[in-house]
Design a binder for these strands. Structure first.
Length: 816
RNA sequence: GCGGAUGUGGUGAAAUUGGUAUACACGCCAGACUUAGGAUCUGGUGCCGCAAGGCGUGGAGGUUCAAGUCCUCUCAUCCGCACCA
């Protein structure tokens, strides 16, 4: 019978569906595995990145099921978000219809690839039920003080017409559409992720070993913790008077308190409150105001090109020396880090140095290298010896930091301070297709929460999406409601949630009990059993975004009493991108390969095999059409050669000693593949080498003709390949083994016992010959034999040393 | 600039962690079967050389009996962060 992927794959997909083959057991005494791929956005069709992602998780899931574990391998859709609205604007479609049509289509694609998902736990985050639970959590978080509303300077994407969180601005541009982001002053809801900054940072240690180092580093950098000294710089009397006595001082932060005696000027961000006050109260000339405004409206990218500044005509007093120091505005001072003001030490900071050179400001040295002189023409930023630093002269600059901070604290003029790069997470979006934020604006009561019993606050279906303004705000009736406190007419919040909120807890939602899904977001009992996720698989692009938010939510949910662990994902595998012709597959480049076409032409098993064979999962994968055909050929051979099997209900017993050399070799190769399978599925994840091992075993089986060896070989190979090519493996397994082989396989040590072994013989480390010896051959005999074989290279040489590495090689060292 | 990763045949990639470099596959070459082959099967295939032999894991050194693997320096590519005070 010829291999027919369509027939076989349909048969098994129907079988799995009818038999609920992949529903996890409710027996919580069993050992569990929670295998999860990052869920997809329902963009319309699957792409190869999805196929790769789920082929990896499916291989894990199926392997662990074979091992007798209770496996949760769920699927859902991250179905809120801008593309649904953009499609609506473009095609005049309804975002909801568009989204759910896509979900249906993609679900079919998933099942046509044979992925072993729990169907009972399927969900989409735009489901009203999901919205209901999420809104309840939002209210909980507000009550805990973890959500607040504030006016601020925000990242605004002019294309998507919405604000973005800091994490969502990549190189000054919108993460989704690449439009340069501008600053806009508006109201916004924030999650207080900064409250968890230290814990998010410290707990990265718990993830070491389970997460790629790179991701841990990226999160560490993003949180950006730095310790230092904060102190006030006081204006002198005339400056104080100039500012109408409104400002006595401003606050600066430094990580280099050791350089404090070298401060020769100080700089404010152009957005600083003092600058704003001076502009508003006409304390600056018109030309200067124009210059400041220009500085403020320059994009962050342009602002980085060259340092520029403006003297404000104000002076502050150095807190230790009492000297007068000029105050400048500088474009390189960031308003949203620290206090938006810096002390400048040009002698020991590159930026301050550049600025001082440009404006000819004083450069005061206070640290010198231990061995004498510093290089001219640049700042000396290394550790050294303090001088010009009062009572700290002669100290090691690094060590003096502690003392100087202590000195400031004793004199009560400054204190030890920690700063973070991480900002609170701005979560409101001025768009329609998202979770409505469950708040109400009441004239009398102010901002109040919706009552939990009124949830969900669902989106209206009859909405006009034009791309202009906020559709919920423009809707004629939706926003009108009653105040949840006083009952008077009030206005609903029309902003919706950032969709990263939904993906911050979906992995918990999969821990709902299927019987109770309507009533609870997740079951405490199931959470306790299933979490954390044993293998989480997804793209590196979420290293800071989703993965940071999800960690934050987990800690919040813990503090809300919903769960009792700190980290959601025990092990993270970041898969590489799928490339074609050297670059990432994308519609705009026209280098995409449609999974549906591959399934149609070769079948799902071929697609899965190729994708796992062509590269290890963490590396980039170059798509290669003839490589796909090669994978298809292997599957055909695998299927065709199964005719050598003699059907059996259990693994054949074989008398190893009586076999021929080829037969023994074939068995060895089969069991080597089995050993490798355990290794790969449990820790190494290099499916490519497992597949190669299977191919070697197949080649070795084919070089012999013992039907018991064939049957045993297939018993094992079909079992270890089932996670990768499940349809054809099940077909073979059913036909010959009544599916009995799809379980944990026993490794027989006897097949690895060798009668004789081949040793390489090297002269001076250069391989010259090989010899075959008995396993227990004596060292003397091995050396004698090795010398015979290499006599040619030993002539007229003096043998200096003879090394025998057991079971590996012989090395003879000669001289002359 | 800072941090991280990677560099092995014509190509995708292996190498049990210091022990026979290039497994497995693609491609290519030859042969078999065939009316035919873009099907299937068999064999070959790191580079130079007629050969003996030599060279060979980005490059240069080093440690070692032995280095793709360890150390020092260096080059290239990719990724992340990027005036964070």
């Amino acid at each position: 019978m010829e291999y027919n992927s369509k027939e076989i794959e349909k048969k098994w997909q129907d079988y799995w569906k009818e038999n609920d083959s992949f529903e996890p057991s409710e027996d919580f005494t069993k050992e569990k595995k929670y295998i999860l791929s990052m869920f997809p956005f329902p963009s319309g069709r699957l792409h190869m990145g999805h196929v790769r992602n789920y082929s990896i998780s499916d291989a894990f899931a199926r392997f662990h099921r074979q091992q007798g574990k209770n496996v949760l391998h769920p699927i859902g859709f991250d179905s809120f978000g801008m593309p649904a609205e953009n499609a609506a604007i473009k095609n005049n479609a309804n975002p909801k219809t568009w989204t759910y049509d896509n979900i249906d289509y993609m679900k079919n694609e998933f099942y046509s690839l044979g992925f072993s998902f729990s169907r009972k736990r399927e969900m989409a985050t735009s489901d009203e039920l999901y919205t209901k639970f999420e809104q309840a959590f939002i209210i909980d978080m507000y009550e805990k003080g973890l959500l607040y509303r504030e006016k601020g300077l925000l990242n605004w994407c002019p294309h998507d017409q919405t604000v973005l969180a800091n994490e969502q601005v990549i190189d000054g541009c919108c993460w989704r559409c690449d439009t340069p982001v501008v600053k806009k002053d508006m109201n916004q809801y924030y999650f207080k992720i900064t409250k968890y900054a230290d814990e998010l940072l410290d707990d990265l240690k718990k993830l070491e070993g389970g997460w790629p180092k790179q991701v841990l580093t990226m999160q560490d950098n993003w949180i950006g913790k730095s310790n230092g000294l904060a102190f006030d710089l006081f204006f002198d009397e005339s400056s104080h008077a100039k500012l109408n006595e409104q400002f006595k001082s401003f606050d600066v932060f430094t990580t280099r308190p050791d350089t404090v005696y070298g401060v020769s000027y100080t700089a404010l961000a152009p957005e600083h409150a003092i600058v704003t006050y001076m502009i508003e109260n006409n304390l600056l000339s018109d030309e200067i105001i124009v210059e400041i405004k220009k500085m403020k409206t320059t994009s962050s990218i342009d602002r980085q090109k060259e340092k520029s500044g403006i003297p404000l005509g104000l002076n502050v007093i150095h807190p230790l020396t009492g000297k007068s120091i000029p105050v400048w505005i500088a474009n390189f001072v960031l308003m949203d880090y620290g206090s938006g003001a810096v002390m400048a030490v040009p002698a020991h900071d590159d930026r301050d140095f550049d600025f001082a050179k440009k404006y000819d400001l004083e450069i005061k040295l206070v640290i010198k290298p231990f061995d004498g002189k510093a290089e001219d023409g640049k700042a000396y930023t290394e550790v050294g010896e303090l001088f010009n630093s009062g009572e700290f002269d002669g100290m090691n600059s690094k060590k003096s930091q502690y003392n100087i901070i202590k000195y400031f604290e004793e004199k009560n003029i400054g204190k030890k301070t920690t700063n973070y790069k991480l900002k609170d997470w701005g979560v409101s979006r001025q768009r329609y297709w998202g979770t409505p934020i469950p708040f109400i604006h009441c004239e009398d009561c102010g901002l109040v929460m919706e009552k939990k019993e009124n949830l969900p606050i669902a989106l209206p279906d009859d909405v006009e999406i034009t791309g202009e303004g906020n559709p919920l705000d423009n809707h004629p009736t939706w926003k009108h409601c009653k105040c949840s406190v006083c009952g008077k007419d009030a206005i609903r919040e029309t902003d919706t949630m950032d969709t990263f909120v939904e993906s911050s807890w979906y992995f918990l939602r999969f821990c709902a009990s299927p019987e109770n899904m309507q009533d609870e977001a997740f079951s405490a009992e199931q959470i306790k059993y299933w979490m954390g996720v044993d293998n989480y698989i997804g793209g590196i692009e979420h290293a800071v975004l989703h993965l940071l938010y999800a960690r934050f939510f987990t800690k919040v949910f813990r503090d809300l009493g919903y769960l009792d662990f700190d980290e959601p994902f025990d092990n993270l595998l970041t898969q590489g991108m799928v490339l074609k012709d050297g670059s990432k597959m994308s519609k705009s480049k026209g280098n995409t390969v449609d999974p549906d076409e591959i399934i149609e032409k070769f079948g799902a098993d071929t697609a899965r095999l190729f994708i796992l064979f062509a590269a290890p999962p963490t590396q980039e994968l170059e798509w290669n059409d003839s490589g796909v055909e090669g994978s298809h050929k292997f599957i055909k051979r695998f299927f065709d050669r199964s005719s050598n099997i003699v059907a059996c209900e259990s693994i054949p017993k074989i008398a190893h000693a009586e076999l021929s050399k080829d037969e023994k070799f074939a068995r060895k190769k089969v069991y080597e593949a089995l050993v490798r399978a355990n290794d790969v599925y449990n820790e190494k994840f290099t499916f490519n080498t497992l597949i190669a091992g299977t191919m070697e075993a197949m080649n070795a089986l084919n070089a012999q003709s013992n039907s018991d060896v064939w049957s045993e070989g297939y018993w094992i190979l079909a079992s270890i390949m089932e996670p990768i090519i499940p349809h054809v493996a099940c077909e073979i397994s059913e036909k010959y083994f009544s599916l009995n082989n799809l379980t944990k396989q026993i490794i027989l040590d006897e097949v690895f016992v060798e009668d004789s072994i081949t040793l390489g013989v090297s002269i001076n480390g250069k391989r010259r010959a090989e010899i075959e010896v008995a396993v227990d051959e004596s060292k003397e005999n091995i050396i004698t034999l090795a010398k015979e074989k290499t006599a040619k290279w030993l002539e007229n040489k003096e043998i200096v040393k003879e090394i025998v590495v057991p079971k590996k090689l012989v090395n003879i060292v000669v001289k002359g």
